[in-house]
Amino acid sequence: MQYLQVLANGIVLGALYACLAVGFSLVWGVLNVINMLHGSFIILGGYLTFFAWQNFGIHPLLALPFVAAILYGIGYVTQLLVINRVVSQPVLTTLTLTFGLDLILYNYMTVFYTATPRRVTLDLGHVELGGIFMPVDRLFGMVLALALTGMLYVLLRGSRIGRAIVAVRMDGAAAALMGIRINRIYAITFGIGALMAGAAGAIFSMVFPITSNLTGDFLGKAFVVCVIGGLGSVPGALVGGLALGIIESFAGQFFGPQHALTVGFLLMLVLLVVKPTGLTGIKGYE
């Protein structure tokens, strides 16, 4: 029974990880950019949700679409005006650029919002099923995270924009020849990446206390999920997220919580070398 509880915790955590990483994965896969801003986008989304709730009493579920829209705008503009200028250059260039942008955003958040841990407390109680204990807000977070990830999947498969993004990911030059405006698709993709980060942040703020000190941790999670699951695909992020959540949950149980992170990273390093395409085997950009 105890293992079932650990497994349930892992699945909830994993759903959140998938939602957290899917935008990062999309940007990496389509733009070939390692977005160092991703962690800060998550925290920004979380903070905005928190302040909407604390200052104006807006329910997080109501705030989420607005937060997501704001993040989309930030992402779109950042890509269009800044990152697009060097998007085709080597890894280190774009990585350094987004790291520089991250320093600015991070600094802004620590000065204006401070690094105090914050959390939206909804007090929804908990449920117990077959001996498994689960706070309702977590369950709620999981459902929301899965729903958002699923919506992104549907968007990529079904919509015109989604098809264009996938086309650019497969072959940018051919897509350009077919009349797709690459720079605009890049901006939209980066916007969606930021949107998913913001939404993930909004969900996190309902489940855990968040602080700007966590940006690096969230970014690290996104790395690990992408490598475990495989880059640039929604199913990859889902598999990677769930795998990491469950592994961390069990590693925490067996080796103590302080080792849970280490196991995740070690797994990432091993997978990188053994199977760089990730568990799903869907080939990434390179």
């Binding site: 390692i34 790395f223 080792h259 280490t262 990188l272 070398v273 760089p276 950009y285 390179e286």
Partner: peptide, 28 residues
């Protein structure tokens, strides 16, 4: 010898992963 088989982003991620792993191992 292990990680230099990777190129581009994968190498970057692997090399930064080493920092994280060593930090976590040292902490724990």
């Amino acid at each position: 010898a292990i990680i230099l088989r990777l190129r581009g982003h994968y190498f970057a991620i692997g090399s930064i992963g080493l920092v994280e792993v060593l930090r976590l191992v040292t902490s724990s």
